[in-house]
């Protein structure tokens, strides 16, 4: 119990904490380095033409407009699938479910759905939507596949948002003679809306960045114009990067376009996540209950 002993203990703490700090710096350095590197190499490619024109000269020039629009269609489609289903499932989990076997099965299902590799979702979409439902390789098939992929994200965020609505809100409404459903619709859902919104944005970000699930269900190398129906194939940003970097005939020539596309995709996905995180932080700070 001497002072020397205490000094040793402090030294050990300083060494350990210094190591943790170093690790954090290394991790941030690596990730930040990637972002900066891509930015420096990609920013030169970004122009109005790049964002609004289709590719030209067998992909070696022109822009990525169809890929941007394709990604937009796919993510909006995915959200149309996942949002109603996800919010309803979250309402079941937070408002109706009681402890028991049914709830355990549902939770196990959601958990495992969240853990399935995205390429397996791609296989499933190929077998069910492309093959069995005969949607073909299309926006519809890709949106359905991506929608199922982000379903657990939406359920998770929505349930958390619903659970944070204080029980007193529900009691007050029920005490005034409202039914369960009226209470959910008029009181609980509005209060949980920002949280659900956050979850949706995170889901969009995830759907926009995924490649494997759309490789066999929706994406194509090149389209002449924009898709005209949900049953058309589309170009998409992540798939465009993959194809330009690996399978193009002029890989070195298109390098600036590749960096440019990567930069657009990163900005889109990280931008969406940033918005979601800011909303969440604001929400926590200004919450009135």
């Amino acid at each position: 119990m001497s002072r020397h002993n205490l000094a040793m203990r402090h030294l050990r703490q300083n060494l350990a904490f210094g190591l943790f700090r170093l690790i954090m710096l290394a991790v941030l350095g690596a990730l930040g380095g990637i972002l900066v590197y891509v930015f420096i190499h990609g920013v030169g490619a970004i122009s109005w033409e790049f964002l609004t024109q289709p590719p030209k000269n067998s992909m070696t020039a022109g822009g990525i407009f169809p890929a941007i629009m394709g990604t937009l269609y796919l993510t909006v489609g995915a959200l149309l699938v996942a949002l109603p289903l996800g919010v309803s499932a979250a309402i079941y989990l937070s408002e109706y479910a009681t402890e028991g076997r049914a709830l355990r099965i549902v939770r196990l299902g959601i958990q495992n759905l969240a853990g399935i590799p995205s390429v397996v979702f791609g296989l499933f979409g190929l077998a069910l939507f492309v093959g069995y439902f005969k949607l073909g390789v299309s926006i519809a098939a890709g949106s359905l596949t991506l929608g199922l992929l982000i379903l657990p994200t939406i359920i998770g965020a929505s349930e958390e948002a619903l659970r944070q609505v204080p029980g007193t809100f529900r009691e007050a409404s029920l005490g005034l003679g409202a039914t369960r459903w009226q209470t959910i619709r008029k009181v609980v859902l509005p209060a949980a809306l920002p949280g659900i919104l956050t979850g949706s944005i995170l889901g969009i970000g995830r759907a926009a960045g995924e490649t494997a699930p759309i490789m066999f269900t929706a994406a194509t190398f090149y389209t002449m114009g924009l898709p005209r129906s949900p049953l058309d194939q589309v170009m998409a940003l992540p798939y465009h990067i993959y194809v330009l970097a690996t399978a193009g005939t002029h890989i070195e020539q298109t390098r600036p376009l590749q960096y440019g596309t990567v930069l657009v995709l990163i900005s889109l996905v990280l931008g969406l996540s940033l918005v979601a995180i800011i909303i969440r932080t604001r929400m926590r700070k200004t919450k009135q209950w």
Partner: peptide, 14 residues
């Protein structure tokens, strides 16, 4: 958390 949402195709590319 933001960096967790980095698309995998980007890391593949890098």
């Amino acid at each position: 958390e933001l960096l967790a949402s980095l698309p995998s195709v980007v890391l593949g590319f890098v």
